[in-house]
């Protein structure tokens, strides 16, 4: 028995130059906001960008971007709709934003199915919004997307950072490239996480913004936040490696 989805996946991603997975050890650290804003900033810089929400059971990038009432176009597969200059793919097109509980194999089958039929075309960057932890999504991305590079998000909490260390260990063991760590939701001016980061690039800090919630669904406002300004500097560090 041969699974045709596995072979075709590589072909579907053959015109994608860079794949970045935004990941963390714990939930609630701001991965989805960072993944969404990262995609918006790259698109604003003129790059061809795709964003895929891989948090199938708790997707949220569609809410951050204010995406509703759209569906991929069927053309020899499915073509992700373009929103704010980003080719956007999410399971919510199919689950209709209803509760979706998936066990391990169900996640992998959904992952393979969507990637087997999605025509991204030519992209400079495909951003993956990962679910938290070292789970099916992490394992499948590492297994099936050999060129993936990870951007790790933590909060200043050592609880968050302790789970990030496990994620980093796992990625290093699998010989997966990690672009660096972002410390998100920084409340006070301490340098605790930066001091603890060893062997991985510290990309920068992003302050906690109590007003952020009001910007969800409003892309222009989202791009004018301090979070976006800080992230823009981080993006420059990532894409122009030595900045």
């Amino acid at each position: 028995m041969f699974d045709p989805r596995i072979t075709v996946l590589e072909h579907r991603l053959s015109q994608v130059n860079n794949i970045f997975a935004v990941s963390s050890g714990k939930g609630g650290v701001g991965k989805s906001v960072i993944a969404s804003v990262l995609a918006l900033i790259l698109a604003r810089k003129g790059f061809k960008v795709g964003l895929m929400d891989l948090d199938f059971t708790s997707p949220s990038t569609h809410l951050i971007l204010g995406v509703k009432d759209i569906f991929p176009k069927e053309k020899e597969g499915i073509v992700p709709p373009t929103v704010y200059g980003i080719k956007f793919m999410s399971i919510v097109y199919f689950s209709k934003d209803k509760a979706l509980s998936l066990r391990g194999q169900d996640f992998s089958d959904s992952f393979l199915e969507i990637l087997a039929i999605t025509r991204w075309g030519n992209l400079d960057y495909l951003i993956l919004d990962m679910p938290p932890g070292i789970n099916d999504a992490t394992l499948d991305v590492v297994r099936f997307m050999k060129r993936v590079k990870f951007i790790i998000v933590t909060t200043p909490s050592l609880l968050s950072f302790s789970t990030v260390k496990k994620l980093l260990d796992s990625l290093h063991t699998s010989k997966v490239e990690v672009l660096g760590i972002i410390e998100n939701m920084k409340i006070e001016n301490s340098s605790s996480i930066r001091e603890h980061v060893k062997g991985t690039r510290f990309l920068g800090e992003i302050p906690f913004d109590p007003q952020l919630e009001k910007c969800f669904g409003e892309v222009r406002e989202l791009l004018s936040t301090e979070i976006s300004r800080k992230l823009e500097k981080i993006v420059d560090k990532i894409i122009y490696q030595n900045v």
């Binding site: 399971i91 199919f94 209803k98 509980s101 998936l102 089958d109 199915e113 969507i114 039929i117």
Partner: peptide, 27 residues
């Protein structure tokens, strides 16, 4: 029709729409 189409693309989303006919579980 809309649900059938969604399952056509990604069969696992059946877990959002189909329930056990006996106990209504979606597991």
């Amino acid at each position: 029709e809309e649900v059938a189409e969604a399952i056509h693309f990604v069969p696992e989303v059946a877990h959002s729409f189909i329930k056990c006919p006996k106990c209504s579980a979606q597991d």
